[in-house]
Each structure stands twice: as C-alpha cells, then as structure tokens.
Design a binder for these strands. Structure first.
Lengths: 212, 212
DNA sequence: GTCTATATCCTGATAGAC
DNA sequence: GTCTATCAGGATATAGAC
C-alpha cells in the first residue's frame, strides 16, 4: 500500500507479479506442478504465456515463489497461535482449526512436488523454509508440552518434538476435506468437529481409556 | 504356471503383458503417472514404445492394470493377516509390519494419481477396488475391536470403523520411509520399531497415560 | 507381436517488434 | 512490459511393413 506513488498505472511492476503468483497458487495447489502449464497460468491472469517470463525466469522459479508464500502464511498463523495462552493442547487445537479452515489444497501433492518435481536448489530452499517455518514452531510447542508433563516424551517411548510435529502434519493432511477417491467419504462434520476429533485422536488414540 | 503348454516361446501372449506391468509398476510408483512416459516403460522392458499398444490400449489402461495389481497384493496380505489369531491390536500390528515391509512407493502420490490424473471410469474402478480390498478388511477388524471393547467406538466420540481404517492408512503412509524433503529425517529405526511405534501412537496417542 | 516411421499435439522457453 | 511468432523437444497414439 505504501508503494503506490508511481504514475497512474494501477499495476506497477511488482503488482502483476503478485497477481501471477496468486493465479499460479490456485492452479498449482489444485492440480500439481506438472499438471499445470505456464499457458494456463497466463490465461488465468489475463496475459499471454511469454509475458510470464518477464517476471519469472522459469516455471520452477514461479512455483518456488508460490510455495514460499504459502509457507510464510502458515508460519505466520502458527507462530501467532502458538503464542496464545492456554495449555499446549488448546494451542494445538487452535492450529488445527487454522489449518482446516485455510488450507484448501492437497497437502501430500504439494509435498510430492517439492520433493520430486523440482531441482536440487529449489528443493533445498523450500525444505529449509518448511522446516523452519512450520515444523520448528510445532516442535517447540510439543517440546513445551513434554516438558510440562502434558505429553509423552522420547524417554517414554514416544516421539521427539519434531517427530511429533511431523505426525501432527500427517493428521492435518488426513483431516483436510479434499475430494476423495472412490466411496470413502471425508470425515463428516464442520471444522470444529473435525479439529476436535483430530486433537482427541492425536492425544488419546483409538483405544478405550483406562478409566472409561 | 499352468498356461505354459503352447509352443517353445518363452514369452507367450500374456507373459509380456505381465513384464510390462511390472516395469510400469516400478516407474509409476516411484515417479508418478505424469512423470513416466510410455517410452520409459517400453525401454525398461526391452521393447519399442508402440509395441506397448499391442497389450494396452492407452497409458491410462496400463496404469489401471498396475494399480489393480497392487491393490490385489495389499488385499491378499491384509485378509491373510486379519484372519490370524490374537487381539485386534496384534493383528493390526501385523498389517502395519506388512505394509512397512512391502510398500516401496509414495502412497500419497499413488492416491493423487488415482484421484486426479485418471478419467472418471478408471477412477471409479480403482476406487471401488481400493475400498473393497483395503479399507473394508481394515474396517472389519476395527469393528471387531470396537465390539470387543478394545477400541473406542463412534458412540464414545471416536471414529466409525471405516473412519478408523482411513486413519490407519494415514498412519501407514506417514511411517513409510520415503525420502523426505529438506532436513526432516524419516522416523528412525527398523520396521519393527516403526510399526510398534505406529500401533502405540494409533492406540494411545501422544498424551501421558493416566496411570503413568 | 514387434518393428520403423510418423501424425498430432502440447510443453517450456526465446526472439524481436511495439 | 506485453505482444506475435516461433523454436526445439517430448508426449501419446496410429499406420503399415514384416
């Protein structure tokens, strides 16, 4: 908002780049890196395909910009919710709600694209951003819960903090309401019901509780 | 083995089709449907690319054959292990071992391919096979555990049997030792340690147990 | 049943006018 | 900064000889 001082052009230099990233985000996250062509991205933003190459040198560079933006968004939400007051369980519940509410793409596919479709350098860049921005804040929260005696630690046969963070992400991916194959219906209920179930299962598991 | 009575040809009609499916299985499961070309499959089995089309009408048909074979393999293992004696937990542990030992591909990617890269008819065929051959046997086992009071049922705020089966598959996918992005290391330990951890977390969760 | 040759299409990326 | 035109390569699939 502070940059709008040059000329009367509505779309200054950086602005169309942002529009391209937004359009690419929707397409890449819905269909995957390989399934989306640069022509589709250009058409979605009202440009011709070669115009994209004025803003991004390669398709891969565009994907990296998309993914970095998404990691930054997740990081912001997670760090904000991790700082709230309440038990570790309550804060993790908040993060679960946040993810179920705002992640509208196929998480495993993004994971696959990052690991298999990109060059080594892009992979390293995104991997570091994902680890530092998503896994690390979650791991800190789990470590706090283990220290407070709320969660089983590695000494009690469970997981390291970052292992627990990875498991949390697997739970989140499972409870995201993506369109599923075949007859398997998504977990029913709204975000509140699904996030509560997610946390309940993550903390207590499927077995009957001893006191029940 | 019973069909080997025609002529001296080592590779009768159906046999090369099987070789093609095996080669395609390795490639598709390692890199995904879109990333593997029919030329690569042909080269891996020592044929030229057009020769494939004598055995399979389209690339998609070949993929369906690959996926149906894999579902049949999983079904066989699961039904065998589900019939053993022992608690539901012990039998689920056996199935977890079986999956960690024999699934060498990227499960979420196969899932994505089935849901997004194939036509409606192939998707329906594979979805039905997957549900009937993998989800249904698991769900029957979970239903048995819920009936025996070993597992929380839907009435106790947990999951339906098929919901629990889906969660089990999510756990299995998470604990498969696929090469991961960035710095996040795979869960350490061999198959026995990882399958035991999987079952422990699935049954008891991350929270400290009341009696501990 | 496998081959060579090829049709047709789509891809990412570049050249150069305006 | 965006356009038109195009390159070079790879994709699936087909035609027809042997």
């Amino acid at each position: 908002m502070v940059e709008r001082r040059r000329g009367g052009h509505e779309q200054d230099r950086e602005e169309t780049a942002q529009l391209i990233v937004q359009a690419a985000r929707r397409l890449f996250m819905a269909h995957g890196y390989r399934a989306v062509s640069t022509r589709q991205v250009a058409e979605a933003v009202g440009l011709t395909q070669p115009a994209l190459y004025h803003h991004f040198a390669t398709k891969e560079e565009l994907y990296v910009a998309v993914a970095l933006g998404e990691v930054a968004r997740l990081r912001g939400g997670m760090e904000r919710l991790a700082r709230r007051e309440g038990s570790v369980r309550e804060r993790l519940h908040g993060i679960a709600r946040f993810m179920l509410n705002t992640v509208d793409y196929d998480f495993p596919m993004m994971y696959h694209d990052m690991g298999a479709e990109l060059g080594e350098q892009s992979r390293a860049t995104l991997g570091a951003a994902f680890y530092g921005g998503v896994i690390a804040p979650l791991a800190a929260l789990f470590a706090e819960g283990q220290g407070a005696g709320e969660l089983r630690g590695a000494g009690q046969g469970a997981l390291t903090p970052s292992g627990a963070a990875g498991l949390f992400m697997a739970f989140a991916a499972h409870f995201l309401d993506r369109p599923l194959v075949g007859e398997r219906a998504p977990t029913p209920g709204g975000v509140e019901a699904r996030s509560a179930l997610l946390i309940d299962l993550l903390f207590n598991g499927l077995a009957v509780k001893p006191e029940a």
